[in-house]
C-alpha cells in the first residue's frame, strides 16, 4: 500500500482539492478533483491498470507523463486513454484493459491438440 505525502520538509503541507468518487472495474474509489487517475489509483494501492492484450500479464504506469502508453485504460467508454494524463472527475467510469481474443493463435493451438 502506498500513501499520500501529506507533509513535506520543503514543499510544505498538501492542499487537497474537493473529493470526488469514480469507479475502476466497478469498484468505487475516492480521489481529489483534477488529480491524475494514475495518482488517485496508486494512492489507494492500485498498481495494475490493465492486462496485456495478448499475454494477459499485468501492466501499470511506466513513464507517468504520457510518452509510453503503458497505463492505457477505458475512461467513460473511450479506449486507450492514458491514466497518467487523465484528470479524475466525479462519477467517472474507468475500466482496465483485458486480454483480447487471439483467434488465429487459439485456432492453431486447438489444432495441435
Amino acid at each position: 500500500m502506498t500513501e499520500r505525502i501529506m507533509s513535506h520538509p520543503v514543499l510544505g503541507n498538501l492542499i487537497l482539492k474537493e473529493k470526488v468518487t469514480f469507479t475502476f472495474d466497478e469498484q468505487v474509489f475516492e480521489g481529489y478533483e483534477g488529480e491524475s487517475l494514475a495518482a488517485a489509483l496508486l494512492a489507494q494501492g492500485i498498481r495494475t491498470l490493465r492486462l496485456h492484450e495478448e499475454t494477459g500479464q499485468p501492466r501499470g504506469i511506466y513513464c507517468n507523463i504520457g510518452h509510453c502508453f503503458e497505463c492505457r485504460v477505458n475512461v467513460n467508454g473511450l479506449e486507450g486513454e492514458r491514466a497518467c494524463l487523465t484528470p479524475i472527475s466525479d462519477g467517472m467510469v474507468v475500466k482496465s484493459g483485458q486480454t483480447l481474443p487471439t483467434s488465429v493463435r487459439d485456432w492453431r493451438k486447438n489444432l495441435e491438440q
Binding site: T2, E3, R4, I5, M6, H8, L11, L14, E35, S36, A39, L42, A43, R47, T48, L49, H52, Q57, P58, R59, G60, I61, Y62, C63, N64, I65, C68, E70, C84
Partner: peptide, 25 residues
C-alpha cells in the same frame, strides 16, 4: 521490467513531488 511497480525514475519524481503520492515504500 513490465511488472506493475517498475517505472522510469522521472515517473517516481512526478508521483512524489507533483502528485504527492509515494511510488512505494
Amino acid at each position: 521490467w513490465t511488472l506493475p511497480g517498475v517505472m522510469s525514475v522521472g515517473a517516481a519524481q512526478v508521483m512524489t513531488n507533483v502528485h504527492r503520492v509515494k511510488p512505494g515504500k
